[in-house]
Each structure stands twice: as structure tokens, then as C-alpha cells.
């Protein structure tokens, strides 16, 4: 999320060159150098070879699996996250603080641990897997399992972006609408949801972006069969293990480009959102 800056007068505080120098040197070495190396490596691949790698059936299948499962995970989190934020902001009930703290579990819990836990839950004899198997539904080692892992790791995004906006919502608007005879459903659709929408969309985009790049939790539960349950991040990893560095570079740079597009989308949504909130104040 973008942090807003708003100062503009000169200052007497010393240390500008030192702190800027340190920051730039560190960013250059730790963040920019590797990204530059990846871009250089993928430029070496050449356009014809790049297209051949990206349009190979296995790569296309992995993109399809990744996008479909990430979309399903995001859909779940859009609904659950909105409901969770609503309950946390609007109602008082025992255990509310605990629920609020639990929301951050997916950010704090390592993805490998999450993957291990989810795989065991959904295994044939697991807490969830056994009853689901009786219904004939397989989650572990199937695309549904990938979606579950992605959904788990991106739970906090929608909740944490919607929650503060919902808290700051002016009650007077709702009250006025209600006084004029509008129903709850109508007020939600026409007053509340439009105010939440930019934050909601930004949260969902962040969740989607995170799901596209998720690796640790997914590799445990996916089964990792080419064409069926192989995600893009894993295919990149496999190409590296096969010493096919051009393929790894081509796929990685494509995923990087998708991440940048998502970042741009989120920033545009947030700029739009800031214009909205500034207008209201």
C-alpha cells in the first residue's frame, strides 16, 4: 500500500546525505541489483525463444491453473473478508479481540507451516478430508487445494483494507437514509458499499497478487502434476532444477510483469480512493 507524503518546507535537520546514501546503497545492492540481473538475463533469451517458452503448453497450463485458483481464492476472501470486517467493526460480542488478532495469523505463520497444516487437514483421513471424501470431493492434490492454500495466505488483505474505512464511515449518512425510509439492503447498496468499494477493490487486488506469487503453502498441497496442479512459481523452480535458466528467466520475468501490473492497479485504486476521502473531509 502506498504511504502518503505531505511535507514541503526546508528543514535544519542534518543527516540527509548520509541517510539517503545509506538507503540508496542498500536498496541498490539488495533490491535493484537482483531485479536488474533478472531483467538482463531475460533480455538474453531473445524474443522468439521467449515466445516459444511462454506459449509452450505446459507454461500456458501453469498460468491457467495459477490464475483460476487465485481468482477462486480471491472471490472467497472478498466475501469472507468483507463479512469479517463488518462483524469486527459493527458488532460487540465475546471473543471479538481474539477474532481480530486471529486475522493476522496467515501473515505471521510461515507458508510452509500453513501448507503442512492444510495438507494434513485435507488428506483423505484428515479432519476435513475424511468427510469431504465421503461426499466424493477431493481437495488435497487437486486445484481446489491450491485455491485453499492461496485463500489462507491472503485472508488479511481485504479485512485490513476495509476495516479502517468502515470505522470512519459517517453514521449520519445511514441515519439520514433510514429516516427517509430506505431499507437496510438499499442503504448498504447505495450508501455503505460505494464508500467501501475502493478499499475493498484494493484489498482484493492485493490478495489476488499475493495468491499469484504464493509458493510455500501451495507446493505442499498441490500434488504438483504438470498441466493439472502445477503453478507458475513451481514451474519456474522446476526449470531451475533442470538448469534451463532461459526458461526460468522468461517465466519469472513474466510473473514479475504481472506483479507490476497488479501493483499499478492497486496504486491507481488507492489514488482514486484518496481523492474520494479527501473530498468528503
Amino acid at each position: 500500500m502506498r504511504l502518503s507524503l505531505g511535507l514541503s518546507r526546508p528543514t535544519v535537520i542534518p543527516g540527509f546525505r548520509l541517510s539517503l546514501g545509506l538507503t540508496l546503497a542498500y536498496l541498490g545492492l539488495i533490491v535493484l541489483l537482483p531485479i536488474a540481473a533478472l531483467l538482463l538475463k531475460s533480455a538474453d533469451v531473445g524474443l522468439a525463444r521467449y515466445i516459444a517458452i511462454i506459449t509452450s503448453p505446459r507454461t500456458l497450463a501453469s498460468f491457467q491453473v495459477t490464475f483460476t485458483t487465485a481468482a477462486a481464492a480471491t472471490l472467497f476472501n472478498a466475501v469472507y473478508g468483507l463479512a469479517l470486517a463488518w462483524v469486527l467493526v459493527r458488532y460487540e460480542f465475546p471473543g471479538k479481540r481474539l477474532l481480530d488478532a486471529l486475522v493476522d495469523v496467515p501473515f505471521a505463520l510461515p507458508t510452509a507451516v500453513a501448507g503442512l497444516a492444510l495438507t494434513t487437514l485435507f488428506a483423505k483421513n484428515g479432519w476435513f478430508g475424511a468427510p469431504l471424501a465421503e461426499l466424493g470431493i477431493q481437495v488435497a492434490y487437486a486445484p481446489a487445494g491450491i485455491a485453499c492454500a492461496m485463500a489462507f495466505t491472503s485472508i488479511p488483505f481485504v479485512v485490513r483494507t476495509v476495516q479502517p474505512v468502515l470505522e470512519d464511515l459517517e453514521p449520519e449518512l445511514e441515519e439520514a437514509a433510514a429516516t427517509l425510509g430506505a431499507t437496510d439492503g438499499y442503504i448498504f447498496r447505495s450508501v455503505i458499499f460505494p464508500a467501501l468499494f475502493p478499499a475493498f477493490l484494493a484489498g482484493a487486488s492485493l490478495a489476488f497478487a499475493r495468491s499469484l506469487g504464493e509458493f510455500g503453502a501451495v507446493v505442499f498441497i498441490a500434488g504438483n502434476q504438470p498441466f493439472r496442479t502445477e503453478i507458475v512459481a513451481l514451474l519456474t523452480y522446476i526449470r531451475l532444477e533442470e538448469y534451463d535458466y532461459s526458461a526460468a528467466a522468461a517465466i519469472a520475468v513474466t510473473l514479475l510483469a504481472v506483479a507490476f501490473v497488479m501493483l499499478l492497479v492497486v496504486n491507481l485504486i488507492q489514488a482514486w480512493h484518496q481523492r474520494h476521502t479527501v473530498g468528503e473531509e
Binding site: 533478472l38 509458493f215 519456474t236 526460468a248 519469472a252 510473473l255 514479475l256 506483479a259 507490476f260 501493483l263
Partner: peptide
């Protein structure tokens, strides 16, 4: 915003 796998590569 960058997948950890991409960072590794």
C-alpha cells in the same frame, strides 16, 4: 509485491 520465488531466481 514480488513473489519470493522470483526473488530467489
Amino acid at each position: 509485491s514480488i513473489s519470493p520465488i522470483i526473488a530467489g531466481v
